[in-house]
Computed example of a mutant assay.
Amino acid sequence: PVKTIGHRISRIEAHNLGERLDIGCGPVELHDIAGPVNRMLDRLQRAFAQLSQFSSDLAHDMRTPLANMISASEITLSRERSTEEYEALIDSNIEECQRLQRMIETMLFLARADHSKELLRPDVLDCHEEFARLTSYFEGVAENKGVHFAIDGATQVRADPSMLRRALSNLVSNALAHA
């Protein structure tokens, strides 16, 4: 029975994560092994399905800005345009690139958060400088939404720079998306 369980486990791969060990056929002592292995396989199957769905969603989300840039560029290049029209295309492509960049940054953040053993590196940060940097990054999106930033006050905070920037960026991005 131990060899049977070992052989069965060795055959389980990504394409057949639904396979389970038969707990009923074998000595009762092996139930203490087969049960936890089956529960582990349940967790792996759910995690794999979530990862597959995330990858599919991500591919779809990344395809949209790329398709926008390609089609806008092709249309613009189809005939002579004014300098203003070329500048508008470049501005539009920059916004789409920034959108892709935010997606990639989010993916990297999630990967580090799930697997990182790094400690936070807190530092004293000037909030006015951090907000100024952040608002300049989102200025184009804000203008399109009719939103204007006003930074008032000056204080310092002790925080990990990348984590603070990520949190503030998420807040501003969500605020602009729903403004």
Rank of each mutant, 00 (worst) to 15 (best):
V2P: 06
K3P: 06
T4I: 13
G6L: 15
H7W: 07
I9N: 03
I9T: 05
I12G: 08
E13W: 01
E13K: 14
A14R: 15
N16L: 07
L17I: 09
E19Q: 15
E19L: 13
D22Y: 03
D22H: 06
I23R: 13
G24P: 02
C25D: 15
C25Y: 10
C25S: 15
H31G: 04
I33N: 02
A34M: 09
P36D: 02
P36V: 08
P36C: 08
L41S: 01
L41C: 03
R43W: 03
R43F: 04
F48E: 05
F48H: 14
A49C: 01
Q50W: 04
L51Q: 07
S52Y: 04
S52C: 05
Q53P: 01
F54E: 12
S55Q: 12
L58N: 03
P65R: 02
P65F: 06
A67P: 05
M69W: 07
A72W: 07
A72L: 08
A72M: 11
S73N: 10
T76K: 07
L77G: 08
S78C: 06
S78M: 06
R79V: 05
R79T: 12
E80L: 10
E80W: 08
R81C: 09
R81Q: 14
S82W: 02
E84L: 13
E87W: 03
A88H: 07
A88F: 08
I90K: 14
S92D: 11
N93T: 12
I94D: 09
E96L: 11
C97F: 15
Q98S: 08
L100K: 08
L100M: 13
Q101G: 09
R102S: 09
R102K: 11
R102A: 12
T106N: 11
T106C: 02
M107V: 14
F109R: 12
L110M: 12
A111M: 07
A111F: 08
A113E: 02
A113C: 01
H115C: 06
K117N: 03
K117D: 06
E118W: 01
L120D: 05
L120F: 04
R121G: 00
P122A: 02
P122R: 02
L125G: 03
L125S: 00
D126E: 10
H128G: 03
R133D: 11
T135K: 02
T135I: 07
S136P: 00
Y137T: 15
Y137G: 07
E139N: 11
E139K: 13
E143I: 12
E143H: 12
N144L: 10
K145D: 00
G146Q: 01
G146S: 03
H148G: 05
I151P: 04
D152L: 14
D152S: 10
A154K: 13
T155K: 08
T155D: 06
V157N: 02
R158W: 00
A159V: 00
S162R: 05
M163G: 00
L164D: 00
L164M: 10
R166S: 02
R166W: 08
R166T: 09
A167C: 05
A167F: 03
L168P: 01
S169V: 06
N170R: 12
L171T: 09
S173P: 01
A175V: 06
A175G: 10
H178E: 15
A179L: 06
